[in-house]
């Protein structure tokens, strides 16, 4: 028994050496839809354009269901050693390094965690998307660093108001509307408390 264990250890050590020598380029792992979950928000990660990924220097890969979740993680874990961050092209789902991608922020684009940011592999694609969808802002990777990642219901309020002005308001909707503004205040309040 002990001999077996010893040999396993030897194999382990050999692997260590091999791993230390061969340092090839960091590659993103494939998304496993039935068992991957977002490191931040616990949601299942769909193998689609919104999936993102961080690979740590030790080879651990973490997946996120929304670009916003990944940036949230980066922000909270500055002490960790990151080898690479990946996002996906909105159209062909190709993995691209996060610092080489172009982003579009548009409040009406639905993303899994409602951060409303999508990524593209080149500026042309991002521009094309932005031209098609009103209210888009193109962000380069550097600009994304300063993005506020706002997704509170402020913006939702604005959306709602827009909808209301179009449709004939009825009492029910107005009531819920008021309720929301109340909540927003609560949420704002909460934020102040936390800081």
């Amino acid at each position: 028994m002990n001999k077996k264990f010893l040999s396993i250890m030897m194999v382990g050590i050999a692997m260590l050496i091999i791993a230390a020598c061969g340092k090839d380029e960091v590659k993103p792992a494939a998304i496993k839809e039935d068992s991957d979950k977002c490191e931040v928000c616990n949601m299942a990660v769909v193998d689609g354009p919104h999936a993102t990924q961080i690979v740590l220097e030790d080879g651990k890969s973490m997946v996120f269901d929304d670009i916003g979740c990944m940036y949230g993680y980066l922000d909270k874990n500055k002490d960790k050693k990151f080898a690479a961050e990946f996002v996906r092209d909105y159209h062909d789902k190709e993995w691209i390094k996060a610092d080489k991608a172009f982003y579009v922020y548009n409040k009406s684009v639905k993303t899994p965690m409602a951060y409303n940011v999508v990524s593209f592999k080149d500026e042309a694609r991002a521009k094309k998307f932005a031209d098609k969808n009103d209210g888009s802002t193109i962000l380069s990777a550097e600009k994304l660093e300063d993005h506020s990642w706002e997704r509170n219901r402020d913006m939702m309020m604005k959306n709602k108001m827009k909808h209301h002005s179009h449709s004939e308001g009825n009492k029910m909707e107005d009531a819920s509307h008021e309720k929301i503004s109340e909540h927003d205040m609560k949420e704002e309040h909460k934020k102040e408390d936390m800081h």
Partner: peptide, 21 residues
């Protein structure tokens, strides 16, 4: 103790191998 020295990506495969030992 032993796997603490192994690179992260080797932990699960080695755990599986150890299972059969």
């Amino acid at each position: 103790g032993v796997l603490g020295h192994a690179p992260y990506t080797w932990v699960s495969p080695l755990m599986k191998a150890a299972l059969f030992v």
